[in-house]
């Protein structure tokens, strides 16, 4: 069936099977490979994207359910002025090792900061509790999200 899904500000019209999962629509139909596909069981969280401004696990949503909605992926974080602070934070704090969990972590991290700019370490840990980093790098991930909270969009970012 025909769907129109707005991904990172662009409307994409595609003819897809209703059984196609959103993560595969993003990766295979649109070629946006920043969103990763991990456990297949909504446990690991590497496939997290935003649907209408809220993070969801895109392996557990059908693409047809996003018809007419807005999706934002990790590719949509960067703005005209450069990297989003959440991306910069992962650079500054060495928030990744292998990088597999990173797109999901950044999408949830950005949402957590938008909801609560003064978010605590404990709240960040709870916020990313549905996402798994197998490099055991949670400490640096939490620091990266904190870094982004302390360097809001528009503030001077040092590379």
């Amino acid at each position: 069936m025909d769907v129109t899904i707005n991904v990172n500000g662009t409307d994409y019209i595609r003819d897809i099977e209703p059984r196609m999962l959103l993560v595969h629509f993003i990766r295979e139909e649109l070629g946006l490979r920043g969103t990763h596909w991990g456990c297949d069981t909504s446990n690991c969280g590497t496939c997290v994207v935003w649907v209408d401004d809220e993070p969801v696990k895109s392996c557990t949503m059908l693409a047809v359910m996003a018809d007419g909605h807005r999706v934002k992926t990790v590719e949509g974080l960067e703005g005209p002025d450069g990297l989003d602070p959440i991306q910069q934070g992962f650079i500054e704090c060495h928030g990744l090792q292998c990088g597999f969990c990173t797109p999901g972590m950044m999408m949830t991290g950005r949402w957590l900061i938008d909801k609560n700019p003064d978010i605590s370490e404990e709240e960040i840990r709870e916020g990313i509790s549905g996402q798994i980093c197998r490099c055991t790098g949670y400490k640096n991930i939490v620091e990266a999200i904190r870094w982004a909270a302390e360097h809001p969009k528009g503030s001077e970012v040092t590379a």
């Binding site: 969280g45 809220e54 969801v56 696990k57 557990t60 949830t108 709870e126 916020g127 549905g130 996402q131």
Partner: peptide
């Protein structure tokens, strides 16, 4: 119940 991202859906 589940985790914050799952609770959104």
């Amino acid at each position: 119940i589940a985790d914050p991202v799952v609770r959104n859906r």
